[in-house]
Structures are given as C-alpha cells and as structure tokens.
Design a binder for these strands. Sequence first.
DNA 1: ACTATGTCCTGCGAGC
DNA 2: TGCTCGCAGGACATAG
Length: 268
Amino acid sequence: MPELPEVETVVRGLAQRVAGDVIQSVWLGEKPQTFKSPPPVIAATLEGARIRSVRRMGKHIVFDLEHNSRGAAHWIVHLGMTGRMLVSPPEAGLEKHTHAIARLASGRELRFVDPRRFGRLSVVQDFTTVGVEPLEISFEQFAPLFRKRNTPIKSALLNQKLLRGVGNIYADESLFRAAIRPRRRAASLSRTELRRLYNAVRQVLRKAIAAGGSSISDYVDVEGAPGSFHFQHHVYGRAGEPCLRCRALIKRIVVAGRGTHYCPKCQK
DNA sequence: ACTATGTCCTGCGAGC
DNA sequence: TGCTCGCAGGACATAG
C-alpha cells in the first residue's frame, strides 16, 4: 500500500516525466467517491493547465498547476490503498478500474487506476496539511509529538495529524527497529526510546525510498514497476516466522484496527 | 481535546 | 471445480 516511500517514488517518476507538460483534456470516471472536488471543477482546472512541478506532502501527490486564464491551482492525488498513477502511451490498453485520464501535450497519458477506490482526487487553490514530515524534522521536533498521548505508539505513528506519511508497514518496521512494542502508550516512551524511534523511522523510510518502496498490495511506480523494500521487511507480513534477530516467532495482533506485527522477545 | 470504532471497496486465498 | 466467506487498510465520520 502506498505510504511515504511509495508516494515519493511515484512523485519522483512524475516529476521526471510530466513536469513542464500541459494537460490537454481530461476524462473522469463515474464513481463519485473518487472525486473530492466536483468532477466539472476538476476537469476545468486541469484542462489547459501546465504542470509546473510535482511534489509529495505526506501521502499526497501535489501537482502544481499554472493556467493561462485561471491562475495557479493544485491537483491533489491520494492513492489510498490500491491507487496507481501511471504514465502511459495512449495506445496502451485501458486497465480495469481506471477512474481518470489526463491527456498530455507530449502525447502521453496520466492514468489513475484504483480497484479498491480508497484513493481520492481533488483540486484546491491552497494545499495545507497539519502534521510534519518525518524526514524533515529534528529529534527536538519529533519527541513532543508523543508527549501526553495515551494511545498506543503504533496508533500515534499512523496519525497523519502528527507525523505524515507513515502507514501500517513502516510503523511496524520502525517499531521493530526501535525495539518498542506497538501497544506501548506513546506517553510512556523514555527519551532514549523516542530517540531510537526517531532514528528508526527515518532509517526505514530512507532505505525504502532507495528500494523504490514496498510492493505488497498492487503498488507500482509510474511505469508499472514494483519496488523491492518488501524483501527487507523484518516483521510486516512475517507472522509465525522466526525473528531475523533472535529467532523467536513474530506475532500478529490488531492495533488501531490494523494488522500489527512484532517480535515478542526483541520489542519491549 | 483525545481516543476508539465502524465504514467504505474489490481481489484474493482458504476452506469445503 | 466452484462456491462462499473473511480479510487486507487510509482517512474520515461518529460516538464516547
């Protein structure tokens, strides 16, 4: 599922391939929940716009648009669980569950495909979010996020209003590397543990970006290629298998309604 | 102001 | 083989 490293990979691919291109026309599908802005507004905002830049904010893809007659705007794409943003030649066969197509002046197409339909498209004048980028903050900014929070640390890591971009896989992998149990109350973490967690989150995210993300669900980059970080997972999806550090069996529990994987011996 | 839980949605694999 | 059923989860609504 697309979390920060997967979205970062997609954004880098998009920035390379479609920055500077112009959206000539747009087709939008019939599934209303895909669109957070009214489809006519999305179409009118995209058509004729030049893509100035593509960047990532948390798990959001932000297309910065410049329109001769309408001024600046932003096209926001959230991939949800199974969303894919593909750069395709027009002759490529249409995948099932294609919900939006933007035809570019260069002849290629930007296609949004999303079987499970948790993904969302919108256009806004200003895009702001709460929460901070884990790869852009210091430890002194990180530690206070968890102070006074009585929720499990795993839930806190998933809370996009605190840190943005960490999802289920990287929460579990970070907690393993920090040797902290997912159900520990956030406020109970010592400064030493928070320091370990800060380092672990950043290391896991950086390594995952370097590997092009994890391809667990149907995540692929803009050209349809999978990432490879799932080969470096220590706990996620390894329930019942031996811990790579101590050989104890990895456990699976449910925290915040999410499958949660940890080593009962290494994580305290 | 927090925190917990239910809901959305389709594909896939287990089980019979 | 072919069917049913349960599970996967990001964000948001709602309730406590």
